[in-house]
Design a protein around this nucleic acid. Structure first.
Lengths: 175, 175
DNA sequence: CTTCATTTATTTATCAATAAATAAAACATG
DNA sequence: CATGTTTTATTTATTGATAAATAAATGAAG
């Protein structure tokens, strides 16, 4: 990558980073391309130099977030009886290091843009399948059910973060 | 209620009904006041005769949905060891009879309008407290944790409905 | 009962603001 | 100068909201 390309890549990445923060906290519709541009220190039309449409920008950010999550889970190694716990830890680490992305993807299913729906559905399906596989290979009896419960845990944690209600978090009095 | 008031009330209710359907399936921002009006067969400005702002309409619908849910849970009576199951049944019944409202309120925490956030937070807090109380009175050890898990179950069911992914539902292979 | 007045229900017309997207110009730099 | 980067200027569409007008119903008075 030549130095020139580095700058371009960094601009694009800057835009995606700012977009991730804004989309996560304000959602798809309240996040205007002008706000994203302003956060980066660039003019609004310039955003369209990197992303053909606002939706493309959103999908790019979402894709990145899903990818990071998949990788994090794939990196987990644990004996069968600790698998669930270790996957949970991986999720928590991600929540600590990339909160924006996690909140974004756990909320994305709410964005009623058809393109977003389709993409989100596909990715959630993938995540579920992968987690299920992990449980299956660990010999857990009802792997699909277990995978669903794991994801539902992610959802309630997201809810507790979004509403700033620690008491909603399932590890509230424990851990 | 005089016949005149009945007609007014029915108009208002019609608007709230149509709004519930639209808000649930298209979210807050894609649901325009014009769409709501059209669904009822009324002009767009007339909606503002009943609700001062679009947000007020949304909150009214949301309030109605939360109320119905609270009532449904309050009506549940069960021995301690069946409480969780019976509450779950109540939720499922509601999902069958008032799917729109359930989807709406389980997604509402995603709407970044400050007024909506506050309202949603307050109501989710109430729901959690009530469920927790029920578990406490039933002598369940970790009532708060149990209440959170119950709500998280509602969330994943909603996700599975919104994305039309039955395999995500925790009762997928069972029940 | 009929005529006039008053309220209630509803529409037409329109505003002001916002936001996504396009095109073309300017700027920089190797 | 030539290529890639960034801005200025502008368009077009949408949407929430307001104000004023119309129509229909109700009620009171002669």
């Amino acid at each position: 990558m030549s130095p020139k390309e580095e700058i371009v890549a960094s601009r694009k990445q800057q835009i995606m980073n700012s977009a991730a923060i804004l989309f996560a906290s304000q959602g798809y519709y309240k996040t205007t391309t002008a706000l994203v541009a302003e956060a980066v220190g660039v003019t609004q039309p310039y955003v369209f130099h990197f992303f053909k449409t606002k939706e493309q920008l959103y999908l790019a950010v979402l894709d990145h977030a899903f990818q990071r999550m998949q990788d994090a889970f794939a990196r987990v190694e644990a004996p069968p009886e600790q698998l669930s716990e270790k996957l949970g830890e991986a999720f928590n680490d991600l929540l600590a290091t990339h909160k924006n992305e996690i909140l974004l993807l756990m909320q994305s299913f709410t964005t009623p843009e058809p393109g977003v729906r389709e993409f989100t559905k596909e990715r959630f399906s993938l995540i579920h399948d992968r987690i299920k596989e992990r449980f299956e290979k660990a010999g857990v009896p009802n792997a699909s059910h277990e995978a669903s419960m794991f994801i539902s845990c992610g959802l309630i944690i997201t809810l507790s973060e979004v509403l700033e209600m620690p008491k909603l978090s399932p590890w509230c009095g424990l851990d």
